[in-house]
Design a binder for these strands. Structure first.
Lengths: 239, 239
DNA sequence: AGGTGATTAAAACTATTGTTTGAATATGAA
DNA sequence: TTCATATTCAAACAATAGTTTTAATCACCT
């Protein structure tokens, strides 16, 4: 009896890895769970709330995903896939001047962050992970954090004429990232402090432009002061 | 019977507001709770864990603080008081050039953030609040967020020759803040992406200097390009 | 010492939550 | 249809967490 049950579970779990689609309640569950996890965080989100919101039975989560963490892990993976890492990466990969690439990266990241007016749930989940890492966290770092940061380091290193692993390069990369993250993580804080700010697409563009100007000012100044000469070397991007 | 009990509770609660010290278990509770709330967040932190860590009985929290939220609220208030808002404010208030003031603010904020190697628990609690606001959140905004941001706007507005409520001023203020916050909120992310980074006092100073350089580059460029003339007007600080 | 009120302690209570169970129902093939 | 399998459902289980209760203990004052 029990072995039968666990076999069913295993089957369901295996199918999970293979065929992503075709089960309506499964999909509904994933979709709803994403928003609720994003709102409340892993611990505070309850299976029951997720299930009623999905119009499913309480046992549905355990049946389809094994347990709560299984559901969360899958939501997170889906989130990583959808977090528009591609948008940023393709921005990084395009063939253009480093300045334009940097601006494109900032714009891509900012756009994907504030979709409807507040950060979409994909990113809210990530911010939960930053504050309260779950067991699913390391994979998150390695899958989205590291590769993008690495390319950003190469890009900025090239712009200021320093190797990607130079401390100054890293400080600059964090300075750029930080300006973007301010709009992600401090949503409620920003709302409290700058109520008139509405995240319309036009506003997002203005913000992106500002961050670009703000950052390039220092990067270009640095380049002309130090390494000075070096023309466009160290363009590792697309090469 | 019950009225007697609730009277006791009220008394304890009232004493709470008045005399901050002199009750060892109360203090121990507050101290331990701060760290545990900072680690796990409000929901995931349990009264039992807090109590055993404080060497107190499970009922101690309800006796001294009414309920869990009461304890949390008090921890948060103490955190706000101790968050070295004063350090930042006194940095903002000092009589110096705007550039030096800005650098001092950055340094003060960054120093108070990474005390021992990772952000101290006062700030980790605040980051939890940003991601999962509790009922205690609005007060937090009004008590630390707004006033400091307001002064920062005045300072930066003065530096670039724009009024504090100009959008450009706000964008710049957020750019400065964001660079600092990157080191607060993305602790684990940073560790995953720049493992060699150790938050020694010297490192913190280097980071602060960098953020100062990075920010001033744009602010000064902006000033000389636009408003250009305006000497030191709009120095609302200390006036 | 005795008594009064504040504090602590152990245990129980209640609500919630993740999970499991076993029956009921739907689905799809032979 | 009939059987087998997958899925859903209502109910219950077990564990946990916040809170309450009641008695014991402590501290201080007369």
């Amino acid at each position: 009896m029990n072995s039968n049950r666990s076999q069913v579970k295993l089957k369901a779990a295996r199918r999970t890895r293979r065929q992503p689609a075709s089960d309506p309640t499964r999909e509904k569950l994933l979709d709803v769970a994403g928003q609720i996890f994003a709102d409340r965080g892993y611990k505070a989100a309850t299976i029951r709330e997720i299930c009623v919101a999905a119009g499913a039975n309480v046992a549905a989560v355990n049946y389809h995903f094994g347990d709560k963490l299984g559901l969360y892990t899958e939501v997170l993976q889906q989130s990583l896939r959808a977090a528009e890492v591609e948008a940023v990466q393709s921005a990084l990969d395009q063939n253009a001047s480093p300045e334009d690439i940097l601006r494109a990266v900032i714009r891509a990241r900012l756009r994907s962050i504030c979709r409807g007016g507040l950060p979409d749930w994909h990113f809210r989940i990530l911010s939960h992970e930053l504050v309260q890492p779950t067991p699913a966290f390391p994979q998150l770092i390695n899958k989205v954090g590291r590769p993008i940061f690495k390319r950003l380091l190469e890009l900025i290193g090239g712009m200021i004429g320093l190797p990607p692993n130079d401390d100054k390069t890293r400080l600059c990369a964090i300075s750029v990232m930080g300006q973007i993250l301010a709009y992600v993580f401090t949503g409620p804080l920003l709302a409290g402090v700058w109520p008139e700010l509405t995240m319309t697409p036009e506003q997002v563009e203005r913000i992106a432009d500002h961050i670009g100007d703000f950052s390039l000012s220092y990067l270009q100044e640095f380049r002309s002061k130090h390494g000075a000469v070096a023309p466009v070397r160290k363009r590792r991007v697309n090469e």
